[in-house]
Design a protein around this nucleic acid. Structure first.
Lengths: 204, 204
DNA sequence: CAAATATACTGAACGGTGTTTATTTTCCAA
DNA sequence: TTGGAAAATAAACACCGTTCAGTATATTTG
């Protein structure tokens, strides 16, 4: 009777193996190289086998995205140490951009690439981003309540702050900041300066 | 001797025909459907012919992107009417998001899709975005100079404001704002509210 | 005007993608 | 040991961007 349980365990193990290989490929070789065939090669199975464990590539990427968000959550936990909410908000901002700089390909999957959002049938939810957004929301809500930032509504504040950071990052990731005509060397500096300036503007 | 000129004109005409068809397909069918084969079908030539006029798809999309930026420039020209710089900055913000709502697929090509940035050899420039960025920069610089916004440095200010608007739009375009748990109906309202709140925060 | 050459175009192929199906191999219970 | 279920796969389908050999058309030359 332990057989059904073992089968289930083996199934979970295989899904783990697939997702782990995919994460590794994302980080080491980039999104473009993560094809079903390359992935199958990496885990030494045939491409068709992957479809016994995932209904399509979108569903697989949804799981990879989930893993990436778990990494972000851990990163936040390590870096959000201050007691003061405003200080913690600054730590959140730097942790966020720090995560992007360490894992640009994963950032892409989490916030830009369309594929993983096609999983989860019919606009139900998108649970993967919940933990990260909740962390932001509750922190921002505390800042609004204690009147340390110039926003009135916590939902609007959270959306705005997130949008600003994501906007900067995604323009950088897609080479659109070239237009600002800054020497390549000083571009990262300018991004950091923009974040500092934003925090100054937002602060009460 | 008019032959060389006519040949050149015919070549330009063909490139026009290709770009026009591509723009049409972008707007009507979306990025995914714009394949060389579909495009060739649309203009009633063989796929190989397109490669006589464009070295690869990236170069073609670069020209489509250029066309899209021309449309944005026209959109700005129609909507930036106020004399007061702060008021004009608000008009710019609403014109920007208005353009996105009218042409989400083109916005994608202009600011998110990687392909067109692979054209133009070796990190030379990215001229397509110049006119739009210049419009933003000069307006923001005027606002900084006249001390109507809470930024000190115009470059940082322009980057920040652009990043905020783009962040909001690109999160919306890629369905990441789902996480904010707002009824679909009120999501657009929230985006508008965020922009209004941002303008309030930025204003002196 | 005819022949030679340059130009414009295309059919077919190459190597890649995600995905499906028919078939084979492996495992486990009777 | 054998029959049937489960797991894995080889091969194919329908796409994709791109290249190349070959054909048809237009132009220049003798």
């Amino acid at each position: 009777m332990g057989i059904a349980e073992r089968k289930e365990r083996e199934r979970a193990d295989m899904r783990r193996r697939i997702v782990d290989a995919a994460i590794k490929m994302f980080v080491e070789e980039g999104y473009e190289k993560v094809s079903i065939r390359n992935l199958a090669d990496k885990i030494e199975y045939s491409p068709a086998t992957i479809y016994l464990y995932y209904k399509d590539k979108d569903e697989l990427l949804y799981d990879v995205q989930k893993e990436a968000f778990a990494m972000l959550a851990e990163h936040f936990a390590r870096n959000l140490t201050a007691a003061d909410p405003l200080e913690r908000l600054e730590q959140l901002a730097w942790a966020y951009i720090g995560f992007y700089r360490q894992n640009p390909e994963l950032y892409d999957l989490m916030f830009i690439i369309k594929a993983p959002m096609n999983a989860e049938g019919e606009e139900e939810k998108w649970k993967n981003g919940d933990s990260a957004y909740d962390a932001l929301y509750h922190l921002v809500a505390e800042c609004v309540e204690k009147k340390v930032i110039r926003f009135k509504d916590p939902t609007v504040a959270a959306m705005s702050i997130w949008a600003f950071a994501h906007g900067l990052i995604s323009l950088d990731l897609r080479s659109r900041l070239k237009v600002c005509k800054l020497p390549e060397k000083t571009l990262n500096v300018s991004i950091d300066d923009s974040i500092k300036a934003y925090l100054d503007v937002v602060r009460c």
